[in-house]
């Protein structure tokens, strides 16, 4: 299996708090890869390493075989054009309208005319169920709508790799299902590799080709949804069954 992203022995601390402790991870190409793990367990930190927003204290981050850790910001910019990213809260530019937000990457990185860009924007907004909402400002939208606009923006350039930081948290069940459907379609129609951070187990089992469980700064289990469900590890079992008792201590 071809791996598009690999992390080798990655360590990251913030002050005295060690978040990643020698993490190793291989994400296969053209698949929906879901990384699960408890809140505050370093999932978003891991995602930010993949796209070079954070640099590890030690270790390698390979994107298509190239270590991105020693790269300058300018070199990283070229790598980042392969990526699209949906942020947890959408991260929309609040001085721009919905339409301008989705058009933003197209205006910056393509030479398309405004008419062509508008057409793509309409199409992307329709895909996330927000047809005709282009004129609104982000402040006028609900959290879920903002997230969907963020998704439309992440997909605007049809990227090779799409990162999703908790795409369904805060959405109603119907909208969650629609977003999950969209993630699978992103993979199938555009041939993109999807990397999803989630703690929505039901959705994960439905959409994932591969699941990785992050715990205490390391990947402790990985495999297909069936393999993960059959996993004997008590931490994994507690997490996927959603039990309060077990090795993961909350209180």
């Amino acid at each position: 299996m071809e791996h598009i992203i690999s992390l080798r022995d990655v360590y990251k601390s913030f002050g005295s708090q060690q978040v990643l402790k020698g993490l190793n991870l291989d994400l296969p190409k053209d698949k929906v890869n879901v990384i699960i793990g408890k809140s505050g367990g370093g999932k978003s930190v891991l995602l930010k390493h993949i796209i070079g927003l954070l640099k590890p204290d030690k270790g390698q981050v390979l994107v298509a075989g190239e270590d991105i850790v020693p790269l300058s910001e300018r070199e990283l910019a070229n790598i980042r054009r392969k990526f699209g990213m949906l942020f947890q809260e959408g991260a929309l530019f609040d001085s721009l309208t919905v339409e301008e937000n989705v058009a933003f990457p197209l205006r910056e990185h393509t030479k398309k005319s405004w008419a062509e860009i508008k057409e793509i924007v309409e199409q992307k907004l329709a895909q996330v169920g927000l047809k005709g909402m282009g004129y609104k400002m982000p402040a006028e939208l609900s959290g879920g709508m903002r997230k969907r606009v963020g998704l439309a923006r992440a997909l605007a350039l049809d990227p090779e790799i799409v990162l999703f930081d908790e795409p369904t948290s805060g959405l109603d069940p119907v909208m969650s299902a629609a977003i999950n459907h969209l993630i699978v379609r992103t993979k199938e129609e555009f041939g993109a590799t999807c990397i999803v951070i989630s703690h929505d187990i039901k959705a994960t089992m439905e959409t994932a080709d591969h699941i990785f469980m992050l715990y205490e700064g390391k990947i402790i289990a990985s495999g297909t949804p069936e393999e993960i469900q059959a996993c004997e590890d008590p931490v994994v079992r507690q997490f996927i069954l959603g039990r309060a008792d077990g090795p993961i201590k909350v209180i």
Binding site: R80, R81, F87, A91, L92, D94, F104, P105, H109
Partner: peptide, 18 residues
């Protein structure tokens, strides 16, 4: 500052814009 805490600056960086 608001752009920083709401990840809008990260979003710019991710979109390969300085």
């Amino acid at each position: 500052g608001t752009m920083r805490v709401t990840e809008q600056i990260d979003a710019l960086t991710v979109m390969a814009i300085s």
